[in-house]
Design a binder for these strands. Structure first.
Lengths: 185, 185
DNA sequence: CAACCTAATGTCAGTAGCTGACAAAAGTCA
DNA sequence: TGACTTTTGTCAGCTACTGACATTAGGTTG
């Protein structure tokens, strides 16, 4: 993962071959693919850990806590992770902005994984079946969108802005989605 | 596209090779890749058309119409498209359920394309910059989640249930996201 | 009709991501 | 030390996809 990150940063994602990474890491290409199913998975190799952090954070909140409060607290633990792994997260974000395959992986695998955790937790707290009741999926989707826009703002600032403030600001828009029904004067 | 759909349906997505499709369509593999950038793009080859339909539907609504009303109307035109291309949409959905690469493409390319249209349109109607103001992205994300769950329910029923009713039901949850703040008694 | 131009197609060779099969090392533990 | 398990290397191969160039098809003009 470190070798990959270094090469991706220097040369770019498509410009780096999996053999290059294997060589830089002093292993065979075959070994590399035994640890990571795809090249993209190698870039996001530390994300399973983050998903578990998310799951734990969700489990840690009291069951009678208001759901939006739960989501805010959990997303702040995600922000904490981002600031702990600042360089890597910024690299992932900037590569996702430049390379189609990276952004596709981020959306379809990483973010969808988080979203699934949110859906399950929200459904459990509401006591509903997430296949029958659309609300868990919609709330999770809105939350993920908040994360995305906050992360994009954070990345655009080069990590300079306060990520936590950006997330809170975005999440605060969720309860007001209904009042968009009035066009701005 | 027709040759691909037939083969995908019969043998599965991964089990069908691009050469198979080219042969079935009586063209060379090289020609096939001149028309579709990826195998997944071939499966979703009629989606650019749908995206334009979405854009037109958004442009057709009066500017002073409440945004949630706009979104509902536009999503119903999407439902109309789904019922017009029932077989193909059901095939795409079932393949997305079975094959990782297909669902990744659906999420990362198709749905993200729709979402982008929504974000642009919502931002324009609110008169805000979608990079600065998180609301367009969040509202678009919630809407896309509504589409996803409705489509999943529709697909699970084999296309038997009323897709329009499912979409309306899901969209109706958006204005109430704020009231989730109270746990169920 | 012929000459000409352009766009679409075919052919071929090659790259890169990824996988199965099997052998060689490298721990691990009695 | 020796037996056993896990990790790694090697090799061969498949498939999606691409660049380069020749070939054909279609349409236009004199």
């Amino acid at each position: 993962m470190e070798a990959g990150a270094r090469l991706f940063k220097d040369r770019g994602f498509d410009e780096t071959t999996t053999s290059d990474i294997a060589e830089a890491a002093d292993v065979s290409q075959r070994t590399l693919f035994r640890h990571f199913p795809t090249k993209e998975a190698l870039l996001y190799g530390d994300m399973e850990e983050l998903q578990l952090e998310l799951r734990d954070a969700l489990a840690d909140r009291p069951l009678d806590e208001p759901i939006l409060t739960v989501l805010r607290a959990v997303m702040l633990s995600l922000a904490d992770n981002f600031e702990r792994h600042r360089d890597r997260r910024l690299l992932q974000a900037s590569l996702a902005a430049r390379y189609q395959s990276v952004s596709a992986y981020s959306r379809a695998v990483v973010q969808t994984g988080w979203e699934r955790e949110l859906i399950i937790a929200v459904a459990a707290r509401l006591g509903v079946d997430p296949m029958m009741d659309p609300r868990p999926e919609i709330l999770a989707g809105a939350t993920m969108s908040a994360i995305r826009i906050a992360t994009r703002q954070w990345t655009a600032s080069g990590g300079g802005e306060d990520y936590i403030a950006l997330i809170i600001n975005a999440l605060d828009a969720i309860p007001e989605l209904g009042s968009f029904d009035r066009p701005t004067p």
